[in-house]
Design a protein around this nucleic acid. Structure first.
Lengths: 220, 220, 220, 220
DNA sequence: GATGAATGAGTGTTCATTCAT
DNA sequence: GATGAATGAACACTCATTCAT
């Protein structure tokens, strides 16, 4: 089983790839630190390279341009958040419908390792580079997949949503979070805020469910 | 000769202000056009001045710096949108609760004179300059005032919302709209999209109302 | 005697010229104030006009360009200082040779109405515009004349100086003062500083006198 | 092959520093040339970079801003002049007291490689940037040190000067030189001018010595 | 003569990116 | 692959000066 051997001995065996991964990680971490510390202002490629402990030339060996760094950082964090949200939706944390939604909201709130300033800066950066759509792609994919999967296992939280409804639901939640981050609202990580987000999602879902029931009753 | 009188009076009565207002308007219009055409990329102070037909020096006589132009443009458009939303909420267009919400959503959707690209560019610009909070100030003021006023006239649509709930409601709607603009969603001005936004707002409000009723019943 | 009448009734009679003189004085005073307050940095024509309470257009009616303002201010102050120095040299204050020199040094030290920052700024401005020579013209004229006049009245302090010696003597004193101003030396208005300047001038003059005596003795 | 060895070692031993030193030297030389040719007028960062044969970016890699270039150039020349003056004072050229002073004056007169216009421009630039004090620092340090050292070797030219006297002596000489440069006096490099400077310094020193002798006699 | 809105040439400076070593 | 010195396009902004009213 070369695969398992490779996996276990990852760090020693594949010097080139391991090195590369380390370098990339160092650069992204440096980028996050700089954004957290000084926002978009001090975020220059030279600064990132220096903090990452690599030369500017090396940085350009791994990232095509400055935007690519921000995008990679954003995607990394979105990926982490989505993984956590997936756990939440699977019912692994709390199997009740409300429990799932609440866990999802909580995961979303605590994304980006709590680095609020960096989160804000990344939002600003992604926006100003017009990379919003690109960043939303994994979200789209994720929700599409999860709508389906959750449906199968008879926990039809998102199951019957049309694509449009999925859009409205996900973007309303993200929109509220985004605004709270950008406006640096103090209640961001508070329980009441979480409660209202849960309410928003559940109320919207309930409205859809009710309508569906009514129309199917009418059809009978 | 009302026309000539008006003209003469125009020049005499408000010599400075009229000129200034024209110049400012020309600059903002030029800024909007440039953003609509080329996004943030070609948006330079010199380009704006040139398109506005004024010298760069004149531009700086009215705007402290580049950011001030974007902010002024954004605020202008937000002001126009809020005025329209105020009409909607007053019931002037459709007095039923749902009618009011729908009119509000419609006003929000059609804001920025339909210039979607410019709207997107302004969003990006405002974000990347960290002016988000500044731009939201009139929104905050507006919703606060309207919650109260609507309440007085026995149309308690927003009347009983806590500040937090107001935040969640307004930002969820704005967030969905923003995402649709930024992702350039084709359904942006469609009726089904409007329907879902209306649903989102109504469902959230209903949930709050229902909870309030339940808790007051329990108190009895 | 039209002259005397004109002189006495100056302020009332010649409206145009009086007005002009007032305006010019206001502009120079404004310039001095701005230089005293903010140095060369905030010294713009618009700022001067505003502080002088005239429009920028009016300012340009009296001064060809920005340099002309600085030069006029400098010349005004040099003129005042030279007038005071003339009194000193005339023996009006103290008739002894040392007394005259000391009075002269004192007048030079206290020139520019004690506005040290403005004095420094004016020096910097005059220098940076290459107007040094122009400013020194009245000095040259003054010393030339005074060398002669003082000679006539048998107080040959500067009487026997060659032009070169005059240059060295005047510029050494001015140079020391200039350096003290530019380096913002705390001892600028102190008695010991004054003493050393007096010594410098007297020692130089004594050296010349002694040499002259020796050579005339040798000639005998 | 000492030449080739040196060349190879040059590139290897001090790869960064050698390059940097060359570049810095080229920039300073370019700055001097531009000032010599056109005075302060044509002295722009882009012009300096171009004449130095480097890009504007490179220039900014070595100098923080425009002022830094002028200051560096001035300090370089002051350093060279002081080194020459040190030789003069050490008696290396002429050991008699007068000989030392004369050699010092001569070194001061011939400073700045004879580039009078550049010297003038640098003076103007340094002044207009308010860097006079900064430039005088090495002079202060130099005279302080030399007063002491010369004293030790029983040639107490400056040895007994108070700080104030040192100031007056150095600045009077510098002041005369400065004025001669700024006013573009034709006698600048003439022997009579040199003679008068020597006289100025010697007379001042003699006056101090005589007074010291008198007061110590009185104390006896 | 007075006004002050308009002008626009001119400049310092940044920073993403390249490429010779 | 790594380095980092060099690049230079790009831009915001100032302010002395003009001239129509």
């Amino acid at each position: 089983m070369p695969a398992s051997r490779q996996a276990t001995e990852n760090k020693r065996r594949i010097p080139r790839q391991a090195r590369a991964a380390e370098t990339v990680a160092a650069i992204l971490e440096a980028a996050a630190q700089i954004l957290e510390a000084g926002g978009l202002a001090g975020f220059t490629t030279n600064a990132v390279a220096e903090r990452a402990g690599v030369s500017i030339g090396t940085l350009y060996q791994y990232f095509a341009d400055k935007d690519a760094i921000v995008l990679a950082l954003a995607q990394q964090q979105v990926g982490l958040a989505l993984a956590e949200i997936a756990r939440a939706l699977s019912g692994e944390i709390d199997p009740t419908p409300e429990g799932r939604v609440r866990a999802m909201v909580r995961a979303a709130v605590h994304a980006f390792r709590g680095r609020q300033r960096a989160r804000k800066a990344v939002m600003e950066a992604v926006l100003s580079r017009g990379q919003h759509s690109e960043l939303m792609l994994p979200v789209v994919a994720f929700v599409a997949e999860h709508g389906a999967r959750v449906g199968k296992i008879r926990q039809p939280i998102f199951a019957r949503l049309t694509p449009l409804q999925t859009f409205v639901m996900s973007r309303s939640m993200i929109g509220v979070l985004r605004a709270a981050v950008l406006e640096e609202q103090p209640f961001f990580k508070s329980r009441p805020f979480e409660d209202e987000l849960v309410r928003l999602v559940l109320a919207y879902l309930a409205s859809i469910t009710k309508e569906a029931a009514a129309s199917s009753a009418a059809a009978r």
